[in-house]
Design a protein around this nucleic acid. Sequence first.
DNA 1: GATGAATGAGCGTTCATTCAT
DNA 2: AATGAATGAACGCTCATTCAT
Lengths: 210, 210, 210, 210
Amino acid sequence: MTKEEVLKEYRVREILEAARRVIGKFGFEGTTIDRVADEARIAKGTIYLYFPNGKDELLHSAVVEGLRDLTAELRRSDDPSQTPIARLASMVRAMFTIQRNHQDFFKALILDSRFVAFEPGDARETELRNVYIEALECVADLLRVAIADRAIRPIEPQLAAVTLFEMMTAPLRRSLLGLAGAPTDADAEAVMELFLYGVRDARPSGNGNA
Amino acid sequence: MTKEEVLKEYRVREILEAARRVIGKFGFEGTTIDRVADEARIAKGTIYLYFPNGKDELLHSAVVEGLRDLTAELRRSDDPSQTPIARLASMVRAMFTIQRNHQDFFKALILDSRFVAFEPGDARETELRNVYIEALECVADLLRVAIADRAIRPIEPQLAAVTLFEMMTAPLRRSLLGLAGAPTDADAEAVMELFLYGVRDARPSGNGNA
Amino acid sequence: MTKEEVLKEYRVREILEAARRVIGKFGFEGTTIDRVADEARIAKGTIYLYFPNGKDELLHSAVVEGLRDLTAELRRSDDPSQTPIARLASMVRAMFTIQRNHQDFFKALILDSRFVAFEPGDARETELRNVYIEALECVADLLRVAIADRAIRPIEPQLAAVTLFEMMTAPLRRSLLGLAGAPTDADAEAVMELFLYGVRDARPSGNGNA
Amino acid sequence: MTKEEVLKEYRVREILEAARRVIGKFGFEGTTIDRVADEARIAKGTIYLYFPNGKDELLHSAVVEGLRDLTAELRRSDDPSQTPIARLASMVRAMFTIQRNHQDFFKALILDSRFVAFEPGDARETELRNVYIEALECVADLLRVAIADRAIRPIEPQLAAVTLFEMMTAPLRRSLLGLAGAPTDADAEAVMELFLYGVRDARPSGNGNA
DNA sequence: GATGAATGAGCGTTCATTCAT
DNA sequence: AATGAATGAACGCTCATTCAT
């Protein structure tokens, strides 16, 4: 990689980080090129050197990078020597940690983003899809292992993974509604337990109607 | 109710429906007063006769009405003579039906909305919260009954309700990612089963590691 | 005059009075048809029955009527049996009284009005001119008498009349600038004295340089 | 001063001059951002670079600048080595000159401005007041000197100054009413004489009734 | 005649984008 | 490469005017 490329990558990263902070502070709708430039301490025009396609591209990249970080973190937190269930629990905890660390950005990402809002066929839609799927597959792969291991039922792994992702937003949503404080580790455990066992009462004396 | 009030309510409804269609087509960010007026086949200024506080109020009302419709539908679908579990299943199916009927709007609502984006203390934030909570409580109440009935475990009903709400977006999200077709009744069943039983393998020979 | 005409004149008067109150409260720029209609307790559309040419015509008429009232008041206050100087003093006092009675309206009229803002040739410009001149001539005629009477110098009566009119706004302007309280009778006397004697020191020991 | 500051000041001046021309042509109510931008041959948005607070700020600045120019001109025209009366006469002549040079603008300023139209407490109201008072004080100070010098009577200098200001608008008003041509030097002399001596006939044979 | 709901031109303002320096 | 002044399309909103009832 040439010196120029290194510099370029550094600049791109700086801009994207600034964009994430701005998104966190002002939401997607409140994110303007001016604010990102200010946050990155560069001139507005400079952004167009690194993101020639403008704002859409920049926001897209910021979201993609956020999801990639998420994926990377999920992978880093994984310890294949553990049982599948323990690994799943680790992943859930890891996602909660990331949510907490980049809280404002993920809050915006979850509540405010148009996730898949590009024109059908737009290359960016594909990329966004792929990076989301990649995060998903971390979990789905683990589910496949767990299924093979008979640790969990033979359900559709991808649907279960999406479901788990959505479940993890529940404590955040509840917090935003003022129904609870910020998500805690206890919430991570609660979500994990719901995901594993559901709500059904398994006690022998349980009411067996369905 | 006087004739004027009837007419006014009719107009308000027409505008809100137009707004919902526009939100569905263009997302929240792409929703402009011009587009709503065009969609409602009225002049731009007319909107301000019925929504004097402008766009924010209009979007807020559209979202609130959407959630109210949801709540109403949940209540209508409920048959208290059934077992709690059967009633829960009905609710899940009802929500899927609504999602299907107003698919684009709910897609925007779920993926794009700033749900709680008003200034803290804004009366609208409170209303939005309340109407969301009302929908939530339909489910939470049912969960309380089910718990009393020992049909489900003594979990925190409100968290479980939020979680169920989030879970129900999973098939929609999956569909939007191109990983599956539009949500079906089968998806409703799958979500219901996950919610009830979780993913854990309950077979006697199951691998019990945790 | 037919019954219809009487009614019409009554309505016109009501609307004009409402307009004057609104102008007083909100200034010319803040005067809208809606506000005038509200103030007159009639429907917006009704105004167009009596002022088919719309807002410009209405404001024009309100100003004209205000000036006519002023003229009428000046005439009513005049007592031809007095000396010209006493009659002038009465007129100045009368103008201050009117200013006080319709303070807000005249404040707007003096400070805010486009007095002669119509297209050249517009019939309304002519009318406005004429009604203003009519008020002016009340004073100018008196000045002519005074000149004939050798009570005042043989100056150009019309210019002197305009000047007196402008001088009378000085206490109001001073008040609006916060440099003094609302115009008082003492201000009327001071203006009158300045108009009669100027500022020059007439004392024998006075410094005679010019 | 850096090059940027010079350029900025130049632009601000250009915009303000354009604004003054537009105000002169269309009056305050007819002054739109579009027209000012057109007149200044810049894009509408550019105005907001130099007047971030928008139209109110722009109009305010235009008026303030106009009054400052007036004050500066009054000071420039003053020659302290002359007698107070001669200095007063110079000031009156100077004001007429300025009126002539920026005729349309001052016409609007005099006839159309809401001079003190901001919310009470608004910093701009204070500034406007102050700049007006500053112009006033040029004259009031001179009047104080003249009083000390016994050239004029011991009248209230500030009221006399406001009165003189108002008197100077008389020829302009007369002209606008079509009662005379544009103000001339002769009008300046006439105003000056009225201000000094009033209208009273001082001839020995004069009619002394009051 | 009286109404007021409906209209849409026109306003002030924002902000993504361009380009001369 | 980096800048930020300049641009102008597009937005939310107001309000004088019209017209069906």
